[in-house]
Design a protein around this nucleic acid. Structure first.
Lengths: 199, 199, 199, 199
DNA sequence: AATGAATGAGCGTTCATTCAT
DNA sequence: CATGAATGAACGCTCATTCAT
């Protein structure tokens, strides 16, 4: 085990810088300085800027997925699950915020390949959420709907409330985010069994 | 009337390129090539890249606002209004898509000034929607809530469904977008008069 | 005869601009605007910027030469002549200042050819002054010396006092210029207070 | 010690190019090519073109001043001092030629800041010489005169003979330059052959 | 003949990437 | 290995020159 894990230093520095300044505005010099390593060192671990970016993206995804899978309980209802998963995810909000913002920065990347990579990652998340949504549609807990659209909107809603909103006002509190997520998702999606007495 | 309107050619090429690749990744050479004009020609119409960007942004905003104001009827209820405004806005979806995407590309722009300009524009929209939401909260048509958050989410929802989603799948149809907008916003926000028989 | 002499307008505008801003910093747009003609018009009279510059230079030279020849009297002594020629030249100081400054801007021109042209013109003046100096050396009125060096210094001295000095202080008065020209050329700085009684 | 000192290479190339072609006409590509380095290398040493120019200017000035101060002897007369200082300065003539020419290129620089910097530097030299001249006027060694004008003319004379003159003919020899400096500053052209005994 | 909209080569500058140490 | 000095392709922008009107 090395005294210092240079690879990890680089990853953390890059994550911070990408989240703070975006892909294009993050320079390799900056990353090297934050990571306290030589610029060339970055290239011993990552072929190029794009791959460094990719790795960070994938790591964030993996962790989010790990958290979600750990929390999900098939034997409980959708909104309970949603609530608990949100709770867990928001615990790491600051770490995700990094990813979230990157995801928002759509179509702003240097190379088409970088764009594709971002889209691909996003698709993975949406696909995962979609499967969960499908499950609960089958169980009749939420209205029949296009699960992909719903999954996509859930992601965007999470991103909007955790990250984007900060440009407009001071960040929302954890509880506020949950409250608004539930407002839009729960009451709208909640299986109509008995609600809305008339139509 | 000139055989070809170069200014318009440039604006359209730039809008297309900004929407497709973002601000930073759009090069003036690219715009010139798409517009089928010399690079210098762009600079006869626009002082610099930033101003070209600004003009496109503001034009999109103005038109959206004009449409919204033309459609809004204070004497009808919130969801009818929402429905009709969406209808009208979606008519010009392709044109807005350009702006929408730009708006999504948060915090990634070249100069601080360009960022500010984008934020300012977004704030104007949110502020406008917020006022409308406030109005209808007062009338008791929608639940009491933080109107700024709701306005912001509405914008993001519109953006997500009209523009972002296209990276994932083929674009949604006009009617689908309306349907999902109403799903998340209407049933969730609708004044609770009588809903949720149990809880 | 045309209502307005466009060629003359261009020449005057260019002279003013070259003198004010120098060769490189003078743009054809600027010249056209000052001359109140279309930019293309300039190119009906002059092949390119360089030639426009050349013509102005030559015109200034020709006039200076004309003035000098008109004033020179072989039958009077060198310093009388110097005095009277200076007098006449200083009458047109403002016009020359233009040329003088250009001449000072050595090695700053766009193309080697433009540089050559400037050098050539300067050589013509020096050559002319040199012949006059030679004449008076032969007559024994001034010390034997390298007439080319002396001619060159005379030109530089004139330029320094009429034009360059203005960057340092307010312009010198006509009489002051003459006084200092005579001081350096005729007498030198050495205090007459008894020093160097003989040699 | 590196095999090659790139910073020095750049400085020398830039000095040569500035002196040869002037500020505006010197391109960074050119400097890079002459210095035999990549264009980007220049920017690892100097923030921008202007700063590169400034550094060269200031270095030349500092050295001239250092030389002059080292040589000046208050206890010896003005012309002896002048003679010795000239002697020392001419030793480095080639190095100064660079600065001198730049100084001649008045009012032709890219940015106002570059111009100011040049003017400021020139003012420093003139101011310094002026103080020395004042001293010797007080001592009665040279005629009462406007010391600023005299200082300015001395500078221009030095510049004319060391640098400008080379455009006209092959460079003057060290001894010739001294001879002519003394001729104009000390004695004047007037033939001593009894002419104009009085005035 | 006169114009000025259109052009593109060329500028100063940045930064991802390489490679000698 | 780890480094950072060195690189040059690519950027936004300027302006002398051209040419359709």
């Amino acid at each position: 085990m090395p005294a210092v894990d240079r690879r990890k230093q680089v990853l953390e520095a890059a994550a911070k810088s990408f989240a703070l300044f975006g892909y294009k505005a993050t320079t390799m010099d900056q990353v090297a300085k934050i990571a306290n390593v030589g610029k060339g060192t970055i290239y011993t671990f990552f072929t190029n800027k794009e791959e460094l970016f990719d790795e960070i993206l994938h790591a964030a995804i993996l962790e989010m997925k790990r958290i979600a899978e750990h929390i999900l309980r098939e034997d409980q209802d959708f909104f309970d699950n949603l609530y608990r998963v949100l709770d867990a995810l928001l615990e790491f909000r600051d770490e995700h915020a990094l990813f979230i913002k990157l995801s928002q920065e759509q179509r702003e990347f240097g190379t088409p390949k970088a764009n594709d990579s971002l889209t691909k990652v996003e698709n993975v998340i949406v696909g995962y959420v979609q499967k969960v949504v499908d499950n609960f549609i089958r169980k009749g807990e939420i209205k029949p709907c296009d699960s992909q659209v719903v999954a996509f909107v859930m992601l965007k809603l999470y991103a909007a409330l955790t990250a984007d909103f900060n440009n407009l006002r001071e960040p929302l509190h954890k509880d506020q985010i949950k409250e608004y997520m539930m407002l839009f998702l729960a009451d709208g999606l909640r299986s109509s069994a008995g609600t809305k007495s008339s139509e």
